[in-house]
Amino acid sequence: MKIESLLFGALFVFLVLANIVYGFMTNWSEFAGGIPLGLVAGMCIMIATYLWITGRRVGTRPEDREDAEIHEGAGEQGFFSPWSWWPIALGAGCAVSVLGLAIAYWLMPIGAGFAFIALIGWVFEYSRGSHSH
């Protein structure tokens, strides 16, 4: 995960520099561009840090080596729920919450409640019934 962490680290540096240039060009009076650039830079450094820590814990993967063969990366990559409807419900709940931010504040708690229920359903999807572990 070395290249991924370097990629997000470079993106962080670019966004910080772009934010500084944007601030000087607007005399630090325009916040509509500076704050989002700073927030995205913060998200990039969080992702870069996570990938760097995970890469140290996991070790070198076949994708990180130049002499790796294709068959070295074969095998199980993880468990992904193939028929889950919960991500769609979670996306709809988040969309209603953001719509509430833009249009009417009374929609926000409705969307947040729906998103919370969908998140709980998605997390505990395989914890009951015939699919429980």
Results as ranks from 00 to 15, higher is better:
residue 56 R to V: 14
residue 63 E to D: 12
residue 76 E to S: 03
residue 67 D to K: 08
residue 43 M to D: 03
residue 74 A to D: 14
residue 34 G to P: 03
residue 46 M to Q: 13
residue 59 G to H: 06
residue 78 G to L: 11
residue 62 P to R: 13
residue 73 G to L: 05
residue 59 G to W: 09
residue 37 L to D: 10
residue 68 A to I: 09
residue 78 G to C: 12
residue 44 C to R: 02
residue 60 T to G: 04
residue 79 F to I: 15
residue 74 A to L: 12
residue 63 E to M: 07
residue 66 E to V: 10
residue 38 G to H: 12
residue 61 R to A: 13
residue 37 L to S: 14
residue 54 T to I: 10
residue 56 R to I: 09
residue 53 I to H: 01
residue 56 R to D: 09
residue 66 E to N: 01
residue 79 F to L: 15
residue 74 A to E: 14
residue 75 G to S: 05
residue 37 L to P: 03
residue 36 P to E: 06
residue 76 E to I: 11
residue 52 W to E: 10
residue 49 T to N: 04
residue 36 P to W: 03
residue 42 G to V: 05
residue 58 V to G: 00
residue 33 G to S: 04
residue 69 E to Q: 06
residue 47 I to D: 03
residue 64 D to H: 07
residue 74 A to C: 08
residue 64 D to Y: 04
residue 77 Q to E: 04
residue 48 A to I: 05
residue 33 G to V: 06
residue 65 R to T: 13
residue 67 D to S: 01
residue 74 A to N: 07
residue 62 P to I: 14
residue 51 L to A: 07
residue 71 H to F: 11
residue 79 F to E: 15
residue 43 M to W: 13
residue 65 R to K: 15
residue 62 P to H: 11
residue 66 E to C: 00
residue 47 I to N: 03
residue 49 T to W: 09
residue 59 G to C: 08
residue 56 R to Y: 14
residue 35 I to A: 01
residue 71 H to Y: 14
residue 35 I to W: 06
residue 40 V to K: 00
residue 69 E to F: 07
residue 43 M to Y: 10
residue 43 M to E: 07
residue 66 E to M: 02
residue 50 Y to N: 07
residue 42 G to I: 05
residue 50 Y to T: 10
residue 45 I to F: 09
residue 60 T to W: 01
residue 52 W to M: 05
residue 40 V to E: 00
residue 64 D to Q: 06
residue 78 G to Q: 15
residue 41 A to Q: 01
residue 78 G to I: 15
residue 65 R to D: 03
residue 34 G to D: 00
residue 46 M to H: 02
residue 45 I to C: 08
residue 64 D to T: 10
residue 65 R to Y: 11
residue 65 R to I: 11
residue 68 A to D: 05
residue 67 D to Y: 08
residue 79 F to M: 10
residue 43 M to N: 04
residue 47 I to C: 02
residue 49 T to V: 11
residue 72 E to H: 12
residue 42 G to C: 03
residue 40 V to F: 00
residue 44 C to H: 08
residue 60 T to M: 04
residue 75 G to I: 14
residue 35 I to D: 01
residue 45 I to T: 12
residue 71 H to A: 13
residue 39 L to F: 05
residue 50 Y to D: 04
residue 53 I to G: 00
residue 49 T to D: 00
residue 65 R to E: 12
residue 67 D to C: 01
residue 55 G to R: 14
residue 51 L to I: 10
residue 67 D to L: 06
residue 62 P to D: 05
residue 63 E to G: 10
residue 35 I to N: 00
residue 74 A to Y: 14
residue 35 I to S: 00
